[in-house]
Amino acid sequence: MRYDTPIYFQLIRQGMYDPKTGDYADSDPVETKLYADVTDTSTDTKQILYGDIKRNSKVIRLQQHYTKTYNRIRIDEKQYIVDFERKLRTKQILVVSEV
């Protein structure tokens, strides 16, 4: 496995009041860059997790646990949310789907 794909854990604070528009808007995301092994999710795993095969999902493997708070994960320009997480002794596996 090659841990060569840059991924960005994003923390987005919601509910910040914007006096210019009068609305509550999301803040700019605070990103933390890590390198991971990213692959497409197999058809069997999609069937087990989602019940069908229509979602764009990926499997992310990290060499160490990521313990900070985050809302989303960005890979290239696409945003993902975590559907399933498993922590092994030193590694962490995340199954994510596109937002």
Results as ranks from 00 to 15, higher is better:
58 K>Y: 00
57 S>H: 03
18 D>K: 10
44 D>L: 07
66 Y>R: 06
66 Y>C: 04
50 Y>T: 01
52 D>I: 02
88 L>Y: 13
60 I>D: 00
65 H>P: 02
67 T>K: 10
41 T>S: 08
23 D>F: 15
55 R>N: 10
66 Y>V: 12
80 Y>S: 04
92 Q>T: 04
60 I>C: 01
55 R>Y: 08
76 D>F: 09
43 T>S: 05
76 D>V: 07
68 K>M: 10
57 S>Q: 03
17 Y>F: 15
57 S>L: 01
59 V>N: 04
72 R>I: 01
32 T>W: 11
49 L>V: 01
49 L>T: 00
84 F>A: 12
7 I>P: 10
66 Y>T: 03
6 P>S: 09
28 D>V: 07
92 Q>L: 04
68 K>L: 12
19 P>S: 12
72 R>A: 04
80 Y>I: 01
19 P>C: 05
58 K>L: 01
31 E>C: 07
53 I>K: 07
78 K>S: 09
52 D>V: 02
48 I>R: 04
2 R>W: 08
83 D>W: 02
40 D>A: 06
34 L>H: 01
93 I>S: 10
11 L>F: 14
83 D>N: 12
67 T>G: 05
80 Y>L: 03
30 V>I: 15
79 Q>H: 07
4 D>M: 08
99 V>H: 12
52 D>W: 06
17 Y>I: 00
6 P>Y: 12
30 V>S: 14
69 T>W: 02
76 D>N: 14
78 K>T: 05
48 I>M: 02
33 K>Q: 15
14 Q>L: 11
58 K>P: 00
48 I>S: 03
93 I>G: 03
68 K>P: 01
78 K>R: 13
26 D>H: 08
79 Q>Y: 11
30 V>N: 13
85 E>A: 15
15 G>F: 12
66 Y>G: 05
8 Y>M: 07
55 R>D: 05
13 R>C: 08
61 R>Q: 07
38 V>S: 06
31 E>M: 13
42 S>I: 05
31 E>T: 11
43 T>I: 03
87 K>S: 08
61 R>Y: 04
86 R>Q: 13
83 D>K: 04
22 G>D: 06
39 T>K: 15
93 I>T: 11
82 V>N: 08
11 L>I: 04
20 K>M: 08
8 Y>G: 04
